[in-house]
Design a binder for these strands. Structure first.
Lengths: 142, 142
DNA sequence: TAAAAAAGTTGCTTTTGTCAACTAATTAGG
DNA sequence: CCTAATTAGTTGACAAAAGCAACTTTTTTA
């Protein structure tokens, strides 16, 4: 790939890093950290059922994750139950508190995204989404 | 904005978070952290000349930054010289080591981006860049 | 069925980041 | 002018986030 294309991508990456930083404030006031919110989301929406799933999907240290999950459990956001089919694993699930907190977080995240595109028309917004879809299809994450 | 559009954007954001995580390994083996690499880049390419510029552009704590800059100086990557026009400020600049390390980092970052789009044709790549440009124009970062 | 591998836990350490108090230099208002 | 307020950067103390390695228990493999 030629240098100016790479340069363009890097420019976008820097730009989008800033964008993500801005929209990553949704957890403020909820008592959860960014990571914790993300864990609730991945457990609930993305159906990642075990610590190990989260470790490989999010690429975080399993020791660290173990502690964060323990803390989430202690504070009442999740439950961990030993998997009967594999007693090394624990199945993760959100509690009622976990689900309702996640809803709040999602609502706030939604608002922040809304702001991000506040000045766009319907049509422009659709074009943005197409652009995102397109990028998502083309990037090779292996 | 309606819910499914927001959902699409969030999906993209999660996706691109992962993408950025992958491409943020360029510093490995250079002895610099992600932040340090970023600082060298912004000082050198974006012409941010003082700690204060970096603080407002990157939105990091000035105390923390002060320490990181001191460490970069001690390790020989940058120089800080008191600004004659405002003796509170220090002008930042890369040393020879700083510049050459930045070059290595940029080269590796380029390779990672190349990999990201390794399977695309010229034309697809151009479309991706257009899509990125388009998004960049439309996002409202205030 | 013994050895290897996998899931998760724990102790220890390092890295990263925050906050507030402080110094020195500059700017602004009376 | 000249004093008060502001600004750039530093420092100490601390807290949060993350990484590493050794370990236990269970499962898989050869």
């Amino acid at each position: 790939m030629d240098a100016d294309k790479i340069y363009e991508v890097r420019k976008f990456n820097r730009f989008y890093t800033r964008t993500l930083q801005l929209t990553n404030k949704y957890h403020l006031g909820t008592g959860l950290t960014v990571l914790e919110s993300r864990l609730l989301l991945e457990i609930y929406e993305n159906k990642l059922q075990t610590a190990n799933d989260l470790v490989s999907f999010l690429d975080i240290d399993k020791g660290y994750l173990s502690r964060v999950l323990k803390s989430l459990e202690r504070r009442g956001y999740i439950e961990q139950t030993v998997d009967d089919l594999d007693k090394r694993s624990k199945l993760l699930g959100l509690t009622e508190l976990g689900r309702s907190t996640l809803e709040i977080i999602k609502k706030r995240a939604d608002q922040q995204i809304d702001q991000l595109f506040s000045k766009l028309s319907e049509q422009e917004m659709e074009q943005v989404i197409s652009a995102m879809d397109f990028i998502r299809q083309k990037v090779n994450l292996d």
